[in-house]
Amino acid sequence: MNDPRNNPIDNLYLQNEFLDQDSQSFNPEFKSILGAINKDDFIEECELNPVVSYNEAVKLACRRATMYLLFAVANHPKLGAPYLQSLNVVDGWVGHIPHTWLMYNNQFFVDMTLAQFTDAPIPETAILPIEKAGNVYTVQYVLTWKQWVDLESQQKH
């Protein structure tokens, strides 16, 4: 794709900044939330093309991915709606492209569709400490999950 020195996502990958679900940095609640995420279910639920690469399947699907994550957490048998309180929805940009992703407890960004912006093999559910993600994301605004769902339900797609 691009020279990794020019792509902040590639730089974070090369510096091993992406966290995986087994990271010791996560409390049990966050590990439970991550356990609700199922890439195959996401592709099926959002009616994405499972034949093409993950990057291609998720292109332009960030809003659906965000809704899927909220739905997966709310409907998970061991989690449920109370766990949504630790999640906020962030709207902004990756580079010059509008994008939407989640923020957990004002500590981590969680993004199922960040992989579309790089050829580096970052995790399909990209998790970054917020202080490391500044060169990747530009935040326009942060909403509670409920505010965001209410706004999305009013949109005509």
Results as ranks from 00 to 15, higher is better:
residue 97 I to R: 09
residue 16 N to W: 00
residue 43 I to W: 09
residue 71 F to W: 13
residue 154 Q to H: 09
residue 83 Y to M: 07
residue 119 D to H: 07
residue 64 R to K: 15
residue 74 A to E: 15
residue 139 V to S: 02
residue 112 M to I: 00
residue 29 E to C: 00
residue 104 Y to F: 14
residue 150 D to E: 14
residue 76 H to E: 03
residue 44 E to K: 15
residue 88 N to F: 00
residue 129 P to E: 14
residue 85 Q to G: 00
residue 78 K to A: 10
residue 85 Q to A: 14
residue 6 N to W: 00
residue 5 R to L: 12
residue 23 S to C: 02
residue 129 P to K: 15
residue 137 Y to N: 05
residue 93 W to K: 13
residue 27 N to I: 05
residue 40 D to F: 04
residue 127 I to Q: 04
residue 58 V to F: 02
residue 39 K to R: 12
residue 108 F to N: 03
residue 100 T to I: 08
residue 38 N to H: 14
residue 72 A to F: 02
residue 140 Q to S: 12
residue 41 D to M: 12
residue 99 H to N: 03
residue 99 H to C: 07
residue 150 D to Q: 14
residue 86 S to L: 03
residue 152 E to H: 10
residue 144 T to F: 07
residue 121 P to M: 00
residue 3 D to L: 08
residue 51 V to S: 13
residue 95 G to I: 04
residue 122 I to R: 01
residue 151 L to C: 10
residue 7 N to Y: 01
residue 67 M to W: 02
residue 73 V to A: 04
residue 40 D to C: 01
residue 108 F to K: 02
residue 73 V to R: 08
residue 32 S to T: 12
residue 129 P to F: 12
residue 47 E to W: 01
residue 52 V to F: 06
residue 147 Q to H: 08
residue 72 A to I: 04
residue 153 S to V: 09
residue 51 V to I: 09
residue 78 K to T: 12
residue 97 I to D: 13
residue 124 E to K: 10
residue 118 T to H: 02
residue 84 L to Y: 08
residue 144 T to Y: 06
residue 145 W to S: 15
residue 151 L to E: 15
residue 131 E to T: 09
residue 30 F to K: 06
residue 104 Y to H: 11
residue 50 P to V: 09
residue 32 S to K: 13
residue 25 S to L: 11
residue 143 L to H: 13
residue 67 M to S: 12
residue 6 N to R: 11
residue 1 M to L: 10
residue 156 K to L: 14
residue 34 L to K: 01
residue 139 V to D: 04
residue 72 A to L: 02
residue 41 D to P: 00
residue 153 S to P: 00
residue 140 Q to T: 02
residue 125 T to S: 09
residue 11 N to W: 00
residue 62 C to Y: 04
residue 157 H to Y: 11
residue 61 A to C: 08
residue 115 A to D: 11
residue 17 E to I: 08
residue 63 R to M: 11
residue 98 P to T: 07
residue 27 N to H: 09
residue 12 L to N: 08
residue 126 A to M: 04
residue 101 W to Q: 05
residue 140 Q to V: 11
residue 157 H to R: 08
residue 122 I to Y: 02
residue 48 L to I: 10
residue 67 M to D: 12
residue 60 L to S: 14
residue 2 N to L: 14
residue 41 D to N: 12
